[in-house]
Design a protein around this nucleic acid. Sequence first.
DNA 1: GACTAAATCTACCTAATAAGTAGAGATAAA
DNA 2: TTTATCTCTACTTATTAGGTAGATTTAGTC
Lengths: 146, 146
Amino acid sequence: MISQKAKYALRALVLLARAGADGSAMIIADISEQQNIPRKFLEQILLDLKRHGLLESRRGKNGGYALLKPADMITFGEVLRIIDGPIAPLPCLSKMAYKRCADCQGEANCEVRRVFAGVAEATRAVLDRTTIADAISDETELATEF
Amino acid sequence: MISQKAKYALRALVLLARAGADGSAMIIADISEQQNIPRKFLEQILLDLKRHGLLESRRGKNGGYALLKPADMITFGEVLRIIDGPIAPLPCLSKMAYKRCADCQGEANCEVRRVFAGVAEATRAVLDRTTIADAISDETELATEF
DNA sequence: GACTAAATCTACCTAATAAGTAGAGATAAA
DNA sequence: TTTATCTCTACTTATTAGGTAGATTTAGTC
């Protein structure tokens, strides 16, 4: 299960992508209200996305958030990794945070690892190839991609 | 990430499948030792798997655990659902525990849901088709299945 | 019938994480 | 200088992960 936080992040990005091909910014309060996301929680999320280079912001009057990275360059995988951390189903299958299982006796022989490697590959195939732009484009497209 | 508990469950099942095509039982202590799983924790796990019909047990001398369900009928997905609960990445995509997102405004239009539906399908394709028997069979088989 | 080897049951513990809340501070425009 | 906005830091509260502990039941053996 992905976290509520990640869901919020993705929804906010989708909204900003819809609003902002033209670079127009949205303020936190409006995003929060339109998407029903707790405002102070959303602040932290957007800040985090900004620090990772997905968003830009301006303070004060006429301020707000807008996409910095183009919507077709932001993958779902990237967002999930920022907000939730590694996507891989096992630490020993993570690219961003590889960690050997404490009690592992030889990864090459690990049946569990072998099976989940397939899962990891399958999920990456979707998450690292699907962008925010894909998500808001023609609805039928996604279903037929593979 | 799957839980440590689920990893333990799968490793124990793999071990029992290896040991027990002939119906021979293994005692908790031995499984615990061979797989480096905390003993008391493993007890709970095996009990749970038994209650769900995957294992059978006998108490007292010459007791132990053995597979009740054949190894080629136990999928990784089944085990994960028993130990960790729903596999789906979103509650609104779970078959075993469907739950509408509190703030959802129309699932059909939800971009996030649409993308993760693809993820769910991809992971189910692996987890619900791969059995314990597959996991211990010829190593090259899994990689080339799809 | 006592002893011993197992599984079973129930309760508890501790640290980390999820999902927020609170409030003061910085900055930009009018 | 006032107001609208983002920014920073700290706190809270409930749940879950990953176990431990100990008493109890059951089945075979001496």
